[in-house]
Design a protein around this nucleic acid. Structure first.
Lengths: 238, 238
DNA sequence: GTCTATACATAGATAGAC
DNA sequence: GTCTATCTATGTATAGAC
């Protein structure tokens, strides 16, 4: 029980938060360079600044009223950019959604891989996976909420990617569980169901953050609770 | 462990399904009578038939593309009723959403109360609450999905009601857990978090049914798993 | 690079014939 | 009770001035 606390201190929420911040800006730059054909702006500095502004405004509005309900006039008002200016940064509303999805997926994938790779054993890997996912969805709450709620508004191709990304995350847990069972550390259950349930618990954090916030639950507190809950089920007691 | 199986047999999914079917038609009739001012149709038989048709078409379309993206022309095509005819059954698109929400909430509340009331002790009540909620969300999967995903598209008043209903369901679990702790049957944890997590597990069933279906998981199988998972955490081992 | 003005499509909603 | 035809508002997207 104590050992978990030690592992947390290796990656506090604050440190984690900074790490994501850096990753986010880099990925924004990558996105700018990759989409130079559909982005009419030439200067990197102004483009990245406004892209960030547009992404954030879109996420804020979509979280409140939904991407479909958000008109580009709304987005124009929220971002302070005119309709014409907006269309210098993307060539359609659909493409805007696509770029935002892409950006979030990359950050998620980068950060999770990086963080889980540090795990020294299976229990540690499980803790890190849970904690990293929760911390990440805390920092990028709007994106995670957006990504879940707006999946239906994407093109079929983008939907496929979203599902793949979703299942990839779940597989991280699946793999840890299966390895743990083989090693005789975890009880034998249906590992697919266990992984699903764990994923669901993590999702609850960003889908219902208002509820947890109202009750004064912090992301660290929630992480501790989830880990305890999972371990009661999978760990073999000695 | 065996005792749970006995309790299930008191309410098989099939029986449950029939119970809901009846409740659904009755509530559809109630809704018709209560909204006689906004519904221009006089004959109960034709009104209830078409209302049911409209509700089902709306749910189907909304589940696929979202309520906001569904135009009334789409709904007209799917239901086989003309635009004009549709407006004889509701006076705005917003009102249509509202009526559907109302109908689902009533069924949910009726069925859950009825089913949980049968519980003979706290563990039994917990099992029944889990199972009833899962079975209900299986029968009415489209409604549950709609209700969760379209909350943002409702008026502020309706949003408040949706949240209240959500929290009421969660409170069922909260109360059972608190009573169980007092009675010395359940371990002491944070009962708010326990109730939240349980609610999230139930929600996962209807939010990701495609995933469970693809993997061949039945609702009964999922219910058994969830109950086992919960009990590993809350039950005091003897 | 950003703005204003505008084109064009599609949405919700209603009127009046049948 | 249901249909077709139509009104009006709003949405996405673009052209061209600055």
């Amino acid at each position: 029980m104590k050992s978990r606390k030690v592992e947390i201190s290796e990656m506090s929420f604050k440190e984690f938060s900074n790490m994501v911040e850096v990753s986010m800006e880099n990925i924004c730059k990558d996105i700018f360079h990759e989409n130079r054909d559909s982005i009419k702006i030439k200067k990197e500095k102004v483009a990245v600044k406004n892209l960030t502004l547009i992404f954030n405004s879109t996420l804020k509005l979509s979280n409140r009223i939904g991407f479909q309900s958000m008109s580009l006039r709304d987005l124009s008002a929220a971002s302070g950019l005119s309709m014409g200016a907006l269309y210098s940064y993307f060539k359609s509303k659909d493409e805007l959604a696509k770029i935002i999805q892409e950006q979030g997926r990359r950050i998620t994938s980068d950060i999770l891989d990086q963080e889980i790779g540090k795990g020294v054993n299976l229990a540690d890997r499980m803790h890190r996976a849970v904690r990293a996912h929760l911390y990440l969805s805390e920092v990028m709450q709007e994106w995670f909420y957006f990504s879940f709620m707006e999946a239906k508004n994407l093109t079929r191709e983008e939907q496929k990617r979203a599902i793949e990304s979703e299942l990839a995350t779940e597989n991280i847990f699946f793999d840890i569980i299966v390895e743990g069972e083989k090693a005789g550390l975890f009880k034998k259950h249906n590992p697919f169901l266990s992984a699903s349930i764990i994923k669901g618990m993590l999702q609850d954090w960003y889908l219902k953050r208002w509820k947890y916030k109202n009750r004064g639950i912090t992301v660290e507190g929630y992480a501790d609770f989830v880990i305890e809950f999972i371990e009661a089920f999978i760990l073999i007691k000695k």
